[in-house]
């Protein structure tokens, strides 16, 4: 009887342990290959490649030798069939470029909020005008960063192959000339194992 009860207690303990969930921190830069979908490793590889390519392109090196050009990020068009937050890719690229000390950025996504703040400082009567930011003093962007993310997906019964191509361009707003363009290709393949596991 005691043995039966012990076994039951053991079985119950195992069952409860099996149901317990565990939260843990992981390495944000670890290789992520859960599926072939676009993932964090792809984002990090793309951002690093784009920034490295841009920084060593001779005309860009010359351009940034004496000054820090002002850029704005337009958008990266997602032409894949997946939902991908392309703004996250451009945010990472922008952060790396700013921290390089070579470029400055204007952020078009906060224009309305900046205008509201300027109007508040100018018109509300609450702000000391000696310290208020002035209208019409912002610096115009000289270049625009924009690009595309496309994919080609092929699959058969046992294999899925995804090819991603990320293209980024730097356009001179005044002349319309593309000053630099970079590309990063990524291929991911998933093969089903023998027993479909």
């Amino acid at each position: 009887m005691v043995r039966v009860l012990s076994l039951a207690a053991l079985a119950m303990a195992l069952l409860l342990t099996g149901c317990a969930s565990k939260v843990d921190y992981g390495d944000a830069q670890a290789r992520e290959t859960v599926t072939t979908d676009f993932g964090s490793t792809d984002l990090q590889m793309i951002a690093a490649k784009m920034v490295d390519d841009m920084m060593v392109f001779p005309p860009i090196v010359d351009m940034t030798r004496e000054r820090r050009p002002v850029l704005f990020v337009d958008r990266v068009k997602n032409k894949t069939s997946e939902h991908i937050d392309t703004e996250s890719i451009t945010d990472t690229i922008q952060t790396k470029l700013i921290n390089s000390g070579k470029f400055r950025f204007v952020d078009m996504s906060v224009v309305n909020r900046v205008r509201e703040q300027l109007e508040y400082q100018q018109d509300s009567g609450m702000v000391d005008q000696a310290t208020a930011a002035q209208m019409g003093r912002q610096i115009g962007a000289e270049f625009m960063l924009y690009g595309n993310l496309s994919s080609i997906v092929k699959r058969d019964d046992s294999t899925k192959d995804v090819y991603y191509k990320f293209t980024l361009k730097l356009l001179n707003i005044q002349s319309g000339i593309i000053e630099w363009s970079g590309e990063k290709e990524i291929r991911k393949t998933r093969k089903r194992s023998l027993f479909g596991l």
């Binding site: 290789r31 060593v56 921290n99 390089s100 000390g101």
Partner: peptide, 28 residues
């Protein structure tokens, strides 16, 4: 310098082969 902005990069090398890897410093 900028430890978290430097990602681990993937590389697959065939047997008995050579590959060039390149990187640019994040800032001066």
């Amino acid at each position: 310098v900028a430890p978290e902005s430097q990602p681990w990069r993937q590389l697959v090398m065939a047997g008995r082969s050579q590959s060039n890897v390149q990187a640019v410093a994040p800032n001066p």
